[in-house]
């Protein structure tokens, strides 16, 4: 029979880059209750043990993508990770890799969102008159929707960036999220930005730098497959074949 878990030990990364040159790990003990997530544990620490701990979170239900962090060495959403599923006595919590550190477990997403914006993440239409005075709807078949629907589930949590070996070394690489979002619009039949979109990623640090490690798809909490989007984009750039 399994021993009843009474408390959980968290080993938390601590550093304020403005004041400290080196990071350290601080250990906390959190009382266990059924369904306890890593985010619940961190909130408990902040409310009861150490108010100086910095964390970022919002929805607590894997919808907003704010609480991404390295949990036992893997990028995960803290709100979506129950402590029992980790099956370790001590849980190590660190900030997301490949992101500049702001404080403790909080990282800067400025560059991440800048790269997302570079991918033109919106529908591009040439029919200006129709846009001004709409006369009809832009209908799609189920099959057409199927081509990109999974990529719309992305919540921009940044876990794929933390897992990507190329993003870790090449700071100009757009990264899995941005490339998957570019494909999301490229594959949309309502979009007319085809050539314009492909030009954005056909460069020295663009689509070709992906090594297809597939780690981005492995860590995605929403089941999005950015590695697939990247391969489909590569085919599109290589043969310029927009499937309709």
């Amino acid at each position: 029979m399994q021993t009843q878990l009474k408390e959980v030990t968290l080993r938390v990364f601590r550093q304020d880059p403005k004041r400290e040159k080196k990071h350290r790990y601080q250990t906390y003990k959190v009382p266990y209750r059924r369904g306890l997530t890593v985010l619940d544990s961190l909130i408990y620490i902040k409310e009861n043990l150490d108010p100086t701990l910095s964390i970022r979170y919002s929805c607590r239900m894997a919808s907003c993508g704010s609480c991404g962090m390295m949990i036992n060495g893997l990028p995960r959403l803290a709100c979506f990770t129950q402590v029992t599923e980790l099956k370790t006595e001590t849980i190590t919590v660190e900030p997301l890799r490949s992101f500049p550190l702001i404080k403790d477990l909080v990282t800067s997403f400025d560059d991440f969102f800048k790269k997302h914006h570079l991918m033109l993440p919106y529908l591009i239409r040439r029919d200006a008159e129709e846009q001004e005075n709409p006369t009809h709807q832009y209908l799609q078949t189920d099959e057409e929707l199927e081509r990109y629907i999974q990529f719309t589930y992305c919540i921009r949590c940044g876990l794929c960036y933390a897992a990507c070996p190329v993003t870790a070394t090449d700071r100009n690489f757009p990264g899995p999220m941005a490339l998957a979002q570019l494909y999301r619009y490229y594959a949309d039949t309502r979009d007319e930005g085809g050539e314009e979109r492909l030009k954005v990623i056909d460069n020295t640090h663009g689509i070709w730098r992906c090594h297809f490690a597939d780690s981005c798809s492995q860590v995605c909490p929403k089941g999005v497959d950015p590695a697939l989007a990247i391969q489909l984009l590569r085919r599109a750039v290589m043969f310029n074949n927009r499937k309709r």
Binding site: T169, D170, R171, W208
Partner: peptide, 14 residues
């Protein structure tokens, strides 16, 4: 070339 461009970025270097 690809390995070196991934290791370090910069117009002059590239």
């Amino acid at each position: 070339r690809i390995i070196l461009l991934e290791l370090y970025q910069g117009r002059t270097w590239e």
